[in-house]
Amino acid sequence: MEQTQGAVMPKRSRNQELQTEKRILQLSVFADVCFVAAELLFAFASHSQSVLMDAAYDGAEMLMMAAAVCLTPLFYRPISEKYPFGYAQVESVFTAVKSAMMLSVMAGLTVNVIQTMLSGGAHVAYGAVSMFQLLLGLVSLCILGVMYVGARKVASPILQTEWMAWRLDVLYSMGMAAAFFGAKVLKDTSLAWMAPYVDQVVALLVVAFALPGAAKMFFGAVKDIFLFAPDEKVLEQVKGICEPLLQAYGFEPVFYDVTRTGRRMWVSVYFHTEGDVLSLDCMRQASKEAQKHLCEKWDYCVCELVPEQA
């Protein structure tokens, strides 16, 4: 017998979210296909190593997002006795793999950049590469805007990782455009010796900016896979929502058991009351109110109240 999400998320709303998420992911896959084709052609024409690395990253991204489009309907299925966590852990695994891929690409880029710097920098058609990266950055910015508008009401870890990946693309492309334009200007001055190193410096700055977010997402996904408790900030938010509601009914919370994986979260609040009599109606109403307020913060959240045994 399946446990429906009931008050957590009406069926119609879930279907709307599913369709919205699939459309955004399909847009991302289509954009990645176009980017990979354009970057490969330009990389072979200009002999630009940075553009070739962009193509490799976007190619891996394309394959991951194609898989995400196929997996997304699973994440909206209700939990059941056979699958007590639904397919939320699959989503956590996917998020961990995706963020690990981002970290590995950053590591590979850093090693490549350092090797290029040690070998004398990069000498390419600075103007052409600058214009190409600027064009990619502007297109990526448009896609990022569409994703933000379409996904701001969808509680999806996959869309969060994808939004982060596109933000990294915007930063990287704009940074490379500025770097190669700067190199083009410098090569005609007394600082011409700096020109081959400009793009590597900017690449390292972009990696340094994006690394903390990707690492946080990776370790958060790993915690979700093993059903570890969320970070202290989430626990404090849960307590801040539940405690005033329960105390209004004369219930005193003594322990919070919070589990999160993927986009789903379960909150069990253990409590005790004064006296030996517990009103089931009061307990049911308090649980309903706590559920409502928690779902305003986390869409896929289930809350239960558990009387503490003496």
Rank of each mutant, 00 (worst) to 15 (best):
M1A: 12
Q3L: 10
G6N: 09
A7D: 10
N15M: 12
Q16T: 11
Q19I: 13
K22C: 04
Q26C: 06
Q26A: 11
S28T: 12
F30H: 03
V33Y: 06
L41Q: 00
A45V: 05
M53S: 10
Y57Q: 13
M62S: 13
M64F: 15
M65A: 07
T72N: 09
T72G: 05
F75N: 02
S80I: 10
T95L: 13
V97M: 15
K98L: 13
M101P: 00
N112D: 05
I114Q: 04
I114V: 15
Q115K: 08
G120M: 05
V129G: 02
M131R: 08
F132L: 03
C142L: 15
V149N: 05
G150M: 14
K153W: 12
A155P: 03
M164T: 11
A165E: 03
A177F: 00
V185Q: 09
L191W: 15
L191E: 08
D199W: 01
V202K: 01
L204V: 08
A210Q: 05
A210G: 06
P212Y: 06
G213A: 15
G213R: 03
K216Q: 14
G220I: 01
D224H: 00
D224F: 00
D224S: 04
D231S: 03
E232S: 14
K233R: 10
V234E: 03
E236G: 06
E236N: 11
V238H: 02
P253Y: 08
V254G: 08
V258R: 01
M265S: 06
V267H: 01
S279H: 07
L280D: 10
Q285D: 15
S287M: 11
K288L: 15
C295A: 15
